Amino acid sequence: MTGSGSGSGGTVRLRPPNHTLDRRVVGWWRTQCLLLTTGPVAVLGVLGAFLAPARLWLLPAAGALAVLGTAASVFLPLWWFRVHRWEVTDDAVYVRTGFFWQEWRIAPMSRIQTVDTVRGPLEQTFGLATVIVTTASSKGAVRIEGLDHALAAELAERLTVITGATPGDAT
């Protein structure tokens, strides 16, 4: 890719993608973290309430897990929001995630096989969607989570048009 990303056939280079996710993704991630924490805390709490011999360690464990889960739900989504980036050019789909262990994914348009848009119940509640770009890579699909659902639909349509016009066999 050239510096402009105009599809002029230059070399594709690793660079930070330009776009952040929709701000509502923070609430979606927080809700997911809280839901993942609630189950184990409830199980430990119920077991602690009914198993007198284990009460001394089950209830404090439930409390500690609740505090850690709540803290993680508050802080981790903000951090994730700061480090997740994405971009689509005429040449490729770029996604960058992670802070300590950064993962940069580039899917050249000529390698894209399918483009899917997914909206789970929780994503629908927050008005978000995920675009999944499948390639022949053994690493798996490139996912752009936390997009406004209308933007995700437009992006999927744009990717379909670009990949249809891009030469190559997507293998």
Rank of each mutant, 00 (worst) to 15 (best):
D91C: 09
T134I: 04
P77E: 03
N18P: 00
P60H: 03
P121S: 07
G69V: 11
D116K: 11
Q32T: 04
V46L: 14
D169A: 11
G98K: 10
A156W: 02
V67K: 05
F75C: 00
V67Q: 07
D90N: 13
P53V: 00
M109W: 12
R82E: 03
Q102Y: 08
T31G: 00
I132P: 05
W86G: 06
V74W: 13
R23Q: 11
Q113R: 09
D169W: 12
L78D: 01
G5N: 12
S8W: 08
T11P: 14
V43F: 12
W29E: 07
S6F: 05
E87A: 11
C33Q: 09
A107R: 06
A52Y: 12
G39W: 11
G39R: 09
L34A: 05
L47I: 04
A66K: 09
V67T: 08
A62Y: 00
W86M: 02
A42I: 04
W80L: 07
L47V: 04
Q124D: 05
D91M: 07
F81G: 12
L35G: 01
T160V: 02
D148Y: 00
W57L: 13
T11G: 14
R23S: 07
L155K: 13
F100D: 02
P77H: 12
L14D: 06
F99R: 07
T163L: 01
V115L: 04
D116C: 08
L128H: 07
R13Y: 03
G98A: 09
T135F: 13
L128Y: 08
L34W: 10
L155R: 13
A64L: 15
L159A: 01
A42S: 08
E145S: 13
L58C: 02
D91F: 13
S4T: 14
L51N: 15
D148V: 04
W80M: 13
A71R: 08
R105H: 07
D169C: 01
K139V: 08
P53T: 05
V46K: 03
V43C: 09
T2Y: 05
L76V: 06
E157N: 14
V74C: 04
T117K: 14
P167E: 07
C33S: 08
L14W: 11
L56T: 08
A136I: 00
W29K: 07
D116S: 10
W29N: 06
L147I: 04
V115S: 03
R158V: 07
T160P: 08
F81T: 09
L35H: 06
V88A: 15
K139Y: 07
V83D: 12
G39P: 08
D91I: 10
